[in-house]
């Protein structure tokens, strides 16, 4: 879970830097979209695990 959160954040960082290196504007739009979607993924996963409380003990 923590690693998933970190990986998505590092992916955004990578895209931003890659936009700087390559100069293709589209990478920046991808980074903006990913910055939103990554957060939603974390929220969904955390809610899912929290909901499974009691039925599953790990």
């Amino acid at each position: 879970m923590v690693a998933l959160d970190l990986v998505s954040m590092l992916l955004v960082v990578f895209l931003v830097v890659f936009k700087l290196v390559s100069g293709v504007d589209a990478y920046m739009y991808v980074a903006i979209g990913l910055a939103l979607i990554a957060f939603l993924a974390t929220v969904a996963f955390a809610n899912f695990i929290d909901r499974a409380e009691g039925t599953d003990d790990d």
């Binding site: 879970m1 954040m9 955390a46 809610n47 790990d58």
Partner: peptide, 15 residues
């Protein structure tokens, strides 16, 4: 980022 961390911590603590 803080909200995501808060939710992960909550789920981990409850479980």
């Amino acid at each position: 980022a803080p909200v995501g961390a808060h939710l992960i911590g909550r789920a981990a603590f409850h479980n």
